[in-house]
Amino acid sequence: MASQLSVSSSVVGSSWNWIVSLLRPFLALFAVILLFTIADRWTHGPKAMFATEQNMRNVATQTAIVAVAALGMTVVIIAGGIDLSVGTAIALAATMLAWSLKEDLALRLAVGENLAGVNQKLKVAEDDLKRAKEAAVVAEAKSRIESLTALRETVTAASVRWSPWTPWLSLFIGIGTGCLCGLINGLLISYLKMVPFIVTLGTMQIYLGWAKWVADNTTVRPDIASQVPLWLQNLLSNRPTALVYGLPVGIWWTLVLTAILAAVLHFTVFGRYVFAIGSNEATARLCGIDVRRNKIAIYVLGGLFAGIAGLYQFSRLSVGNPTSGLGLELKVIASVIIGGGSLKGARASVLGTLTGALIMSAITSGCTALGVTNPIQDMLLGIIIIIAVALDQWRQPKTN
């Protein structure tokens, strides 16, 4: 009887600890929102805007890019890794997406040209004709204009068939770019047996340079009216007509991705391998786990989420900016740590990561509502990251 009571109390205790660990990030988020609600009400009275429905929707929208990337980082950190290149990988994915839309890539692959390119060549030929004085040069310019005019008609006719495929091809290229970045990181870390911190520090610069090269050191701006489909514009839009049950579609997709990743981590063999590798890589190898192959899969999965975050970033900015991801990696990693993840591996949760990202966005929004300047906000974010890591170090001996 005593043994049964002991087992029962042990089960209740473990269940209670699991519930507390699950709810801890939500309690922290509630405390942050409550603190800024009171402070905003105290400062602005009836004009307080922090706790309004519109501002909470803005907080959720601002969180989406970091939250999606942080979901992938959660898997990487559970496995005992780190990815400093996630910010530039997001910007690269967004830039590739924007470039594909601007170039009307499906049409260009089908017929070798796009309308913008043909029109530009035609304009150059017309300018040459205006400047031409010799008869031979005039004849050559007129001949070139005629051929380019015929080519424009051919391309215009082909665009009816091929241009509708460009957004889907661009979507594949953007997300695929994120996966490729993750694959490169995973291969370098697994086969060269290098420290993830150093590898991803190097690839961070590689992806930044790659994005600048694609964008020709500028910002890629596809035409919103004709080249960016409405569903992509509305992904993170707060316009009333773009909302689904009060939130942008992208927020709902983030929640779906969170549920799917949680199921993968807790109910699949791959999920158990991720925790095993993060707990003790040598032991996992001795247990028959293919550590190298699973590490590559882990970083590819992280890259997949970075690619989706790049899609979100383009939807929010409507441009591809190669430098838009600089510094974003700190917020992504901080979301995981604030949400209860450990840099030593084997501990993190997708719900914790989601609330960690929301906590940072709520703090930023609250500071803005209270009139706190950006430099102070940046310092506050740094202090929060240090405190989160310190708490992780303080908790660690208790779990060893």
Rank of each mutant, 00 (worst) to 15 (best):
A89P: 02
K121Q: 15
Q205N: 06
I251D: 06
G320A: 10
A306G: 04
T95C: 15
L370N: 06
V256D: 01
T37N: 03
V319P: 00
A93H: 09
R292K: 12
A334I: 11
T43Y: 04
T200W: 06
A31V: 03
E53I: 12
K295M: 12
N374I: 10
E53M: 11
I19W: 15
I65P: 11
T368N: 14
L29P: 12
W168M: 12
N280H: 05
E134C: 11
F267V: 07
V124F: 13
L351W: 09
V155Q: 03
I387E: 04
L257W: 01
T355K: 04
T241I: 12
I376E: 03
V220L: 06
G174S: 05
G356H: 06
D128C: 03
E146Q: 14
L358T: 02
A60D: 08
A135E: 15
K121L: 14
Y312G: 01
Y273G: 04
V111C: 00
I383F: 15
L34N: 09
L247H: 10
R131M: 07
L23F: 04
A106E: 05
A116K: 12
A284H: 07
G176M: 04
Q54P: 00
V274Y: 13
A141K: 10
L311Y: 02
A348I: 13
Q313S: 15
G382D: 09
G13Q: 08
V214M: 05
V228C: 14
L330K: 03
A309M: 05
V336K: 09
A388W: 05
L188T: 02
A263E: 00
G352I: 06
R239Q: 12
I298A: 11
S21G: 01
K102V: 00
A110V: 06
K193F: 00
V11R: 06
F26Q: 01
V319A: 12
P167Y: 02
A89S: 15
G371S: 11
G356A: 10
I363R: 10
A141N: 08
S15G: 15
G117Y: 03
S8N: 11
K123R: 13
T364A: 11
A282G: 01
K102D: 05
I90F: 10
A276M: 14
E134A: 15
A346T: 08
P229G: 07
W16D: 00
V269S: 12
